[in-house]
Computed example of a mutant assay.
Amino acid sequence: MLLEPLDHRLEPALAGLHERLAQAALETGDLKIAYTVVASPVGNLLVAATQQGIVRVAFENEDHQAVLEKLAATVSPNILHVPSQLAEPARQLTEYFRGTRRTFDLPLDFRLSRGFRLNVLHHLPEIAYGRTESYAEVARAAGSPNAVRAVGTACATNPIPVIVPCHRVVRTDGSYGGYLGGTEAKRTLLALEAAA
């Protein structure tokens, strides 16, 4: 059986219904994770937040649907696409990509990171816009000078890239190293900051 495409006249009504359901979920506390998608020079970014703050930023190459499924399994299955709840993070990301914002002022939810990885993530925003640090420098700053590989793992598993700037961590020789969003995304972010 072939389904007919949705009548375009229904789309505004469905959007209104979705917004009312989202608002009701917010009011009752049933909405645990809101998400939206923000266009950027490094592709569309999935931005997800809990009541505590931004919990996840995901690049397209991570497969947004898979990221949402993992959030549903690890944080809460109560997830809704509610762009209005993420207007401020979307605005700040847009400003960053335009080159008019150098730091983010957003609440963050670090529940997806623990231990030394969390220490690394707390240090990353201290690396100034337009600057870089080596994995070794970050290891020292995070309190474990010999944990250079662990810094690489912390950056590779950073659940809040861009906002928590793991792209500013490079190899001692200045080469990029790996990046969750891909080498080209890292190059783009560093070039954007260097141009400011």
Rank of each mutant, 00 (worst) to 15 (best):
L31S: 06
R168Y: 01
N61M: 10
L189Y: 03
L180I: 13
A48G: 09
V42T: 05
L68G: 14
V164P: 11
R98Q: 08
R20E: 12
D105R: 03
G152Y: 07
F97T: 06
S144A: 11
V75S: 01
S134I: 00
H122R: 15
A49C: 08
A147F: 15
L45N: 06
Y35I: 03
T153Q: 14
V148C: 02
L108V: 15
G152V: 06
L3A: 07
L124A: 07
F110T: 04
L121D: 11
G16N: 05
T183M: 02
R101L: 15
P161Y: 08
Y179L: 00
I127H: 05
P41N: 13
A24L: 12
R56V: 08
T183E: 07
F110K: 07
P77F: 12
S113K: 10
G16V: 08
A154V: 03
V67K: 11
A34F: 15
E19F: 12
A25W: 11
Y179P: 00
A196M: 13
P125F: 11
H123N: 02
A136H: 04
I54L: 09
I33Y: 05
E60L: 12
R91L: 15
L124D: 03
R187K: 14
V67G: 12
G115I: 12
D7R: 15
P5K: 08
A24R: 11
T153M: 10
P41Q: 02
L192A: 00
V120D: 08
T157I: 09
L45A: 09
G16D: 10
Q52K: 14
A150V: 01
R91Q: 14
R101A: 06
L46T: 01
D173P: 00
V170M: 01
A141E: 06
A39R: 14
C166W: 01
Y35P: 08
L121G: 13
L2Q: 05
L121K: 02
V55H: 08
P89W: 05
I127A: 03
Y179M: 01
E137Q: 09
I54S: 06
R98D: 06
G29A: 05
A87S: 08
L10V: 10
F97H: 08
C166Q: 05
N61C: 03
A49F: 06
F116G: 01
H8F: 12
T28D: 09
E11R: 13
E88V: 15
